[in-house]
Every structure is written in C-alpha cells, then in structure tokens.
Design a protein around this nucleic acid. Structure first.
Ligand code: MG
Length: 755
DNA sequence: AATCTTGTTTAATGGA
DNA sequence: TCCATTAAACAAGATT
C-alpha cells in the first residue's frame, strides 16, 4: 500500500493475525509488511529504541496470569476504572515494564471478563521523563533538543501536591491518524504495525526495536513491526517531537520577515524552489508579524525569496498563487472594513506557522543541497525517507528528471493531518476511541488480511466522529474528554474557520473573528465551507454525507461569526510595485507578462519562447515532506505563538470541526494561559536520547502554570483486538500549579481510582 | 472605456 | 485516484 506521498500518512493499525505465539520477537511475517513494510527499511541496527529502551523486558512476570488482572500486576502497575467510560480501565505502567506482557494480560483479562468487564484499557506510562524534541526544529537556533522533560502533569514546580482538583482527563486519540511527520520517523512505522491480539496467548511478539532509520527493507526477518505500539517505547517517541515544534517556529518567523531575501533564496535563481505554492504562500504569510499579506505582498515576498519566480518563471505563477489562495481553504481572505484591501491569512487551525527559515538551512537547492537542508530537519527527513521508501532522498526517482524543475517537486507542504478534537467521553459517548482504532471491522473475529484492511481504509468515508453533542456536552465535572485526532474529517471542520468558535462562543475567539471580514470585496468567495484540506478522520462506516454540503449546512450556523469586519488597515503597502502586469499580449519574446495565462492573444510570444521559462533544472528530489508537522503540534503552536492578536489562533488549534460540540477542551486550551512558554526554556534540556524518550509530552501549552499536559498512551481494546495510540490531555482543573508539584505527583494522587 | 488587478472556478495534465 | 500545477475563462473592483 503505498500511500501517495502527498497524502498524509495515516497510521492505521492493522490487525494482524497473530502469527506466532512465540513471544519473541519480532519478526512477523514478512508478508504483512507489505503494507508498509516496503517503506520502511529495516534498520538493521535496530533501533534506537530498542536499544534505547532499557527496560522493557523486565517484566515478565505477569504474563498471562489471569490473576494479574486485577491489580495484580507487578511492580507499579496500577489499574483503575476509567472515571467515565464504561468497561474501560486506566492502567498505569512503569516505564520499564514489559509492555507486551502487560498487553497480553490485559487482553486476556478483557476477553475473559464478561460483558461487563473491562474491555478497553488505556495504558499510560507512569512517570518517566519525557523528552521531547522539537521536530523540525529548525533553525539553527534550534533547539531540537529541547525537550521538556515534562512530567506528565506539567511541571509545576515541585512542590508537594495535594491534589484537589479533579482531574480532567482527555484523551486524544492520535492513534492512527498520526501523521508521520508529526511523529517523526518512528512513528511512522507504527503505522501498520499494530498487531491485533487475537487471543491473549498469542501475542504477537513485538519488536522492540524500532529502527529509525531503517526504513527499508523489510526483510523477512525484519520486523515490520518494529515499533509496534506494543513497544512502550513508542510512547516516548511519539512524544512531542512534534509538539514542540510549533513553538519553535515562532521565533523564526519573525526573523523571517524582515530580511527578505538573502538567506535562502538566493541560491539558485534558476532553480525552482522545491516548495509548493501552498508552502510558499504560507512562508510568506507567516513571515509577517501580522500573519497576513496582500496578494501583492505575497508575490513580492516570493520573488524576493525565490528569485526564480522573479527572473525565470513565467508569469503564470502568479495565477497559480491566486489559484492556490482561492482554492485552499486554509487561506482566507480578509477584507478591510472599507473593503478596499484584502489580506490573506492562514486559517488559524491550519497554520503551522511554517517559515522558510525553518526549512532552509543551506543555500542552494541543488539536490545535494537539498540533502542539506533536509538534514537540518531530521524529523522531516526521516519522514521523507520513509515515504520514499528508502533513501532516495538523493536520488531522483527515475521519473522525469528532466523537467523537473517544476513538476518534480513534491509538495513539501505540511498537511494538516490531524487535529485534536476533544470529545467528551464522559457522557454517553459512543465510540470513544473508535476512530482511532480502526474499528468497525466487519467481523471482529476475523483477522483482516492486509488486503482487506486496505480496502477498508480505502473506502472510508468521512464521518463525524463524535456524536454531536448538544450543547452541554461537557459537564463540568466530567473529567474525561477524548480528543481525537482526526485526520481526515473533512466534514467537520469544513465550515468553520474555527471550530471552537462554533461551539461555544468563546469570547475571545469571537472577537477575533469578528474583526475580520472574510471577504467582502472582490468577488464571491464561497462561504461555504469547502473541502478542506486539513483534517479528516476517516471512518469506515458512515455514509458520506454528501460531502461538504451536508456538513456545510450544519456548520453554516456558525458562519456568520466569521464575517465580521475587521478593522484593518494596514499597510498593505507599497503600492509601488512594479510588477508586471500581465500584459496581455506581448509579442515579445519576453516572457509573457500576464499573470493570467491566456490563450489567445495575450501571450503569443510564448510560442517558441515558451520554453524560455521552461528550463529544466536539476530535478528536485522528492522532498516532500519537509514540512509536515504534527498535528499535535498544531495546538501547540497556537499556544505558543505569540498570538498577537489572534485570539483565534488557538482555536484550539486544530480542531477543525466546527460543529463539534465538544469543544470543551479546546476552549480550555484557549483559556489556558497562553504563555509564552517557550519550550526550550521550560524544558530542561534533556539528553534526549530518543530511546529514552518517553511518552509524556506535553504540550507546553500551559506554561509553567499549566495544569495540563498531553501524554501518550495506548488503548487496548479487547473487543477489537486493537491497540491504538492515544494522546491524553490531562488537565487538572482546580489545581494551581503553583501549589503542587505536579512533577512528582503520582497519578494516583490525582486519580483516586488509580490506586 | 480600456486596462489592470485580484479572485473564483473549471479543466487539463502528469506524477505518484 | 489523488493532488499540485498550469492554463484559462470570467467577474468585478481599481486604475489609467
Ligand atoms: Mg481560500
């Protein structure tokens, strides 16, 4: 199954038949890996993880002992009933425990328990340090290392805690849907790897190793699963690499703006930058403080930073820019009150704050160079590799290298694949984790073959993940909310710019929105939510709601909010561009001037000359992914970002859905102190060895004071025999950080049930 | 009024 | 089939 590079990789878990009973490791059948195996080459060495991880093996003990089930797990394992989800238990596992064994036991437990017994287990790693690395961190300044060693509960300062607040546990199901980019290499693998546990006994041997680099060959021996979720390690890895990233960006951005060209751009004038229009537009917009730009400014920014467009490209590129602006709903046009000026902005939920700096380190686009910059962003790189299947970074795919310049480039853009959407579990939430899990397999019993799986995925339809919750979705006391990551739920966020908004009008958001008028002037802009490129959660079962429309209608409600006028003003500035207007016809051999290519008379000259601009340069490699960021991050970004005046940003980031009733958490997020929390600063630089990194990562969203954090966990659903990764957003309302030492706090302290 | 500029759409193309 | 790119038709406000 190769996914098209452009599409977001969705990590899905596939069920695999258990092949072996042997505990041992690794290898799964070769065949299965086809799914993805191809892409990953096996790292021979194994992974960091494996090695890195210390202890996993340790446990052993409990293995299938039925007894374990109850709280019998050895060392430090604690089990508690989930506060609000029926038949679900929260299992806190020591970092070094043998996850496999635990899973095995739990699986057995789940199966044996009757209908009422626990069927689903949320596995959390007990403390560990977590480190996060910022993903693409980027700039030289980079911090990739930064990590927060945040404890699960946020770093409070260390004090003793008493926990009084009630914990609000939210689970974000990142699971499948995680974008590779987000997670970084490792995660990618996870994708498919989830084994299904058919029977307790037969657990699939997990591999502990994950190879990061290895993508590749899936040798027979190679364990495709390396990273299977079962490996607790992943918890760490997943971490925030992604999350942190956001924050980083900000800084960068600023830099960007002013100093136009020089840095990156320069390089090759003749080579077309490897970025897609969408990416360049984002770079441009994000380079400004205000995060908005007029069309003209965008043009000039691009020309300044990528001389290619100024000197080489044919004028049609401008048409393409416009096309992209209109087409992608991530770009929103705001019209000034007077209606005369239109500024393009990036939808808050979708904005990853990408900037050119982040990507480009070294000058020059030459392939080799690319390698460079790729290097700069390790995570991305990795991702890419994976996608490609192997190390082809450098090599150009056989395909046309020639014309390359243009066509070959892969989109670097970030896709917003996933967003965290809070879903209140508490109430009668129906399928909680389902989305993440690939649920709905027709027959639970039957293991899907890979092919089958594929099929399913293919057909998935988009549906609304969570039931719409009426307005009062979350009760205050409701501790748990689920945040799902849906990559693809187009529907959901379709309409609304800021989902959050929709939900409950948080004042802040509203305001922001109010300020801007979406489009007033020039022409029709479809208010209707369009397909978004962003998130989507695919679900197998639902009928496709007629696409957008359905959704749209739902959402429509909120619409208005957006249309407010913004007081804009600004300098759009320089009016003096000289830029070329499309001269309709310029017989000259010069480049056609009109930005709108027109067939007829306009640019006749092109004829022979057409080629003029078509040089083929060196083929670009596929770079694709350089930009992808994790979904998770997004939120972060928002928080971190100094939102100047964007209240909207938070938007929770990411939640695309407008109509989700659930917005509680987002909102909270919003409310949460946006601090300038700089991950770097906050987090103590850990050594960050990846192997170690553990799961908990948190969004730094809350500054020091925050009493919330994101932690990764696993959800073991014995009904489906599925294992999903999830992100837990833990918030302890009522706790003031200052008062507690969250870091030291144990889960049990916060969650009584865990004990 | 002719031209530009900015926007929106639709379609074709080609890579993956 | 999906998606980015390109081309192009059109529309409407802005300029000349
Ligand atoms: Mg748009």
């Amino acid at each position: 199954m190769k996914a098209s590079p452009r599409r977001p990789l969705i990590l899905k878990r596939r069920k695999r038949p258990l092949s072996f009973s042997g505990p041992t490791d690794v290898q799964q059948d070769p065949g299965r890996d086809e799914a993805d195996g191809g892409k990953s080459k096996r790292g021979s060495s194994g992974c960091d993880v494996a090695s890195g991880c210390p202890g996993i093996g340790g446990m052993g003990t409990s293995q299938h002992d039925p007894q374990l089930e109850s709280q019998k797990f050895p060392e430090g394992i604690r089990i508690a009933n989930h506060p609000s989800i029926p038949n679900t238990q929260v299992v806190v596992i020591p970092r070094n425990a043998d996850l496999q064994s635990i899973i095995k036991v739990l699986t057995a437990k789940g199966k044996e328990s009757g209908t009422n017994g626990p069927k689903k287990f949320i596995l959390l790693s007990s403390n560990g340090s977590s480190s996060s690395r910022y993903g693409p961190s980027v700039s030289s300044k980079d911090p990739r290392t930064s990590e927060t060693g945040i404890q699960p509960l946020s770093q409070g300062g260390g004090k003793s805690v008493t926990c009084q607040g009630e914990p609000d546990l939210r689970i974000a199901a990142v699971s499948d849907q995680v974008h590779p980019a987000d997670l970084g290499l490792r995660i990618i693998k996870k994708e498919e790897e989830l084994p299904s546990f058919e029977t307790a006994d037969t657990l699939v041997p997990l591999t502990l190793t994950n190879k990061e680099a290895g993508t590749g060959a899936t040798g027979p021996g190679g364990p495709p699963l390396d990273d299977s979720l079962t490996n607790i390690q992943w918890l760490g890895k997943m971490s925030t690499d992604s999350l942190g990233a956001c924050s980083v960006k900000e800084e960068v951005e600023k830099e960007n703006q002013e100093p136009p060209a020089e840095s990156s751009s320069v390089e090759s004038v003749h080579e077309r930058p490897p970025y897609s229009y969408m990416a360049m537009i984002q770079f441009a917009i994000n380079s400004t403080q205000s995060k908005r730009m007029t069309l003209k400014e965008i043009y000039t920014w691009i020309e300044d930073h990528f001389p290619y467009f100024k000197h080489v490209a044919k004028p049609g590129w401008k048409n393409s820019i416009r096309h992209n602006l209109s087409l992608h709903d991530m770009f929103i046009r705001q019209t000034s009150h007077n209606g005369k000026i239109s500024h393009w902005t990036i939808r808050a939920e979708a904005n990853r704050f990408l900037t050119l700096d982040q990507v480009v380190k070294s000058p020059g686009y030459s392939p080799s160079e690319q390698a460079h910059w790729i290097c700069a962003t390790p995570l991305l790189l990795c991702q890419q590799q994976k996608r490609t299947g192997s190390n082809d970074l450098l090599k150009n795919p056989g395909a046309g290298s020639t014309e390359v310049g243009f066509r070959k480039m892969k989109p670097l853009l970030p896709r917003t694949d996933s967003y965290l959407v809070p879903i209140p579990l508490s109430l009668n939430s129906p399928l909680i984790l389902q989305p993440s899990t690939h649920i709905t397999l027709p027959s639970l019993q039957v293991p899907l073959t890979s092919s089958t799986y594929t099929e399913l995925t293919r057909r998935r339809k988009r549906i609304r993940i969570a039931p719409k919750v009426p307005s009062e979705p979350v009760t205050s006391n409701q501790p748990v909310n689920l945040m799902m990551d849906y990559q693809a739920l187009p529907l959901i966020h379709r309409a609304a710019p800021l989902p959050t908004t929709a939900c409950d009008s948080s004042a802040a958001l509203r305001i922001e929105e109010a300020l801007c008028k979406e489009n007033t002037s020039r022409r029709k802009q479809r208010h209707v939510p369009q397909p978004m490129e962003e998130p989507v959660l695919l679900f197998p079962d639902f009928p496709d709601p007629g696409m957008d429309s359905g959704m749209a209608s739902d959402l429509s409600t909120f619409h208005e909010s957006r249309t407010l006028e913004q007081g804009s003003d600004f300098a759009s500035t320089s009016a003096d561009y000289n830029f070329k207007t499309p001269i309709k016809e310029k017989p000259f051999r010069d480049l056609p001037a009109s930005s709108t290519p027109s067939k007829g008379g306009s640019s006749p000259s092109l004829g022979g000359g057409g080629e003029g601009w078509k040089f083929s340069l060196t083929p670009l490699k596929k770079e694709d992914s350089l930009f992808e960021f994790s979904p998770v991050r997004t939120p972060c970004g928002s928080f971190l970002t100094p939102l100047r005046n964007n209240p909207g940003y938070l938007s929770l980031s990411s939640t695309p859905f407008k109509d989700f009733a659930i917005f509680e958490s987002p909102r909270e997020l919003l409310n949460s102190p946006v601090k300038e929390l700089d991950p770097h600063s906050l987090s103590p630089p850990l050594a960050d060895d990846q192997g170690e990194r553990c799961s908990r990562e948190l969004l730094a969203s809350s500054g020091p004071s925050a009493n919330r954090s994101l932690t990764e966990g696993l959800v073991l659903d014995t009904l489906n025999d599925s294992l999903s990764k999830i992100l837990l957003d833990l918030s302890f309302t009522g706790l003031e950080d200052e008062d507690y030492d969250l870091g030291n706090m144990s889960w049990s302290a916060l969650i009584p049930e865990l004990r």
